[in-house]
Amino acid sequence: MKIFIVIFLLCLPSQIMAAVLLNGNTIEYTGDITDAQNTRFKDLLDSNIERITSISITSGGGNINAGMDLAELIFKNQLDIIIPTFCFSSCANYLIPAASNKTFGTNAVIGWHGDAASARWRDADIDAMVSSLTGKEKQAKWLALRAHYDQVIEQAKERETALYKKWRVNPDIMRLGLKGNVKDAVLANKARGWTYSVDAMAFFGISNLPPSDSWQPKSTSSFPLIIVNHIQ
């Protein structure tokens, strides 16, 4: 498989305020993907079920399972997705493949940085959680937390695999930048992750994408991404 990458930068506002609002036939979802935001989304959807046709989202991602919860609502209700400016991490991983038709703003930045398996808690993270404990109590708590978080990730991986199978999309779209020359480019350029052209997204099975002359993948000075233009 040959991968063609390029790097260029634009500017992008960095702060995203959290809100879930109804605007005509669209629910506008901004900020982190969370259980609370999803509850608001579902309430609006349920109370306007005959009216809602799309979700417009601006998000840097959020909790893995919250992302999959939102994706399942989108898929079940056959909603279109509109990405005006920014969609990263869980937003790109789950909402784009789950949605029906996709519309991207001309300057929208869309990026990936790994799948559920790559979100594994580091030992250092658990060390910080038990730093106030000592002796056998600290050791027991550390081992319990390690087992708990490993189980959380295993369950998320299984759910993620099942969803991608249902969506008929290749989950490698979430993993390409974790290995090979894309990973090398990410590390060399201190990028936050990677992004794809419309053709490259289609390679993985993403359908109903916008025409390539209406949107091109982008990176920003404050949020650098490696751009994957073609995969052969």
Rank of each mutant, 00 (worst) to 15 (best):
Leu45Glu: 07
Thr103Val: 15
Gln37Leu: 10
Ser90Lys: 02
Leu79Val: 00
Asp32Tyr: 10
Lys76Trp: 03
Ile33Phe: 11
Asn107Gln: 13
Thr26Val: 14
Leu79Ala: 02
Glu72Asn: 15
Thr39Asp: 03
Ala99Arg: 04
Pro84Trp: 13
Asn107Trp: 06
Asn38Phe: 13
Asn93Cys: 06
Ile110Gln: 08
Ile57Ser: 11
Met68Leu: 10
Ile74Asn: 13
Ile55Tyr: 05
Asp43Phe: 08
Ala66Asp: 05
Lys42Ile: 10
Thr58Leu: 04
Ser89Tyr: 05
Phe104Thr: 10
Asn107His: 12
Asp43His: 11
Gln37Trp: 03
Asn63Ser: 13
Ile57Lys: 13
Pro84Cys: 12
Val109Asp: 00
Pro84Glu: 13
Leu70Glu: 07
Ile52Ser: 09
Cys91Lys: 06
Ser90Gln: 11
Asn93Ile: 02
Ile110Cys: 09
Pro84Lys: 10
Leu44Ala: 10
Leu73Phe: 15
Ile52Gln: 08
Gly60Tyr: 12
Ala66Tyr: 03
Met68Gln: 07
Ile52Lys: 06
Ile96Met: 01
Ile96Cys: 01
Ser47Arg: 09
Asp80Pro: 07
Gln37Arg: 13
Thr85Arg: 09
Lys102Tyr: 02
Phe88Ile: 04
Gly61Lys: 04
Arg40Asp: 13
Ile81Lys: 07
Ala66Trp: 04
Ser90Asn: 08
Ile64Lys: 00
Asp46Met: 13
Ile81Tyr: 02
Ala108Pro: 05
Arg51Cys: 01
Asn101Glu: 12
Thr34Asn: 13
Thr58Trp: 03
Ile55Asn: 06
Asn101Arg: 15
Met68Arg: 10
Ser90Pro: 02
Asn77Trp: 08
Ile33Val: 14
Leu44Met: 07
Thr30Ser: 14
Asn107Pro: 01
Gly61Thr: 03
Cys87Gln: 03
Pro84Gly: 09
Thr106Ser: 14
Ile110Tyr: 08
Phe41Thr: 03
Gly61Ala: 04
Asn93His: 12
Ala108Arg: 09
Gly60Arg: 07
Ile64Met: 01
Asp80His: 08
Pro84Val: 11
Gly105Ala: 05
Lys76Cys: 02
Ile82Glu: 15
Ser47Gly: 02
Ile49Arg: 14
Cys87Ala: 11
Leu95Gly: 01
Thr85Lys: 09
Asn77Cys: 04
Ile52Phe: 06
Phe41Asp: 01
Ser47Trp: 00
Asp32Trp: 05
Ala71Arg: 06
Ser100Thr: 14
Phe75Trp: 11
Tyr29His: 11
Tyr94Val: 00
Ala36Trp: 01
Ser56His: 07
Val109Trp: 04
Asp43Val: 09
Leu45Thr: 08
Met68Glu: 05
Ile81Arg: 07
Asn63Ala: 11
Ser47Ile: 00
Thr85Phe: 02
Leu70Ile: 00
Gly60Thr: 06
Glu50Tyr: 06
Thr39Leu: 10
Met68Ala: 01
Phe86Gly: 00
Ile64Tyr: 00
Asp80Thr: 01
Gly60Ser: 07
Thr103Glu: 04
Lys42Ala: 09
Ala98Tyr: 08
Gln78Asp: 14
Ser100Met: 15
Ile33Gly: 10
Ile74Lys: 11
Leu73Gln: 15
Thr53Arg: 15
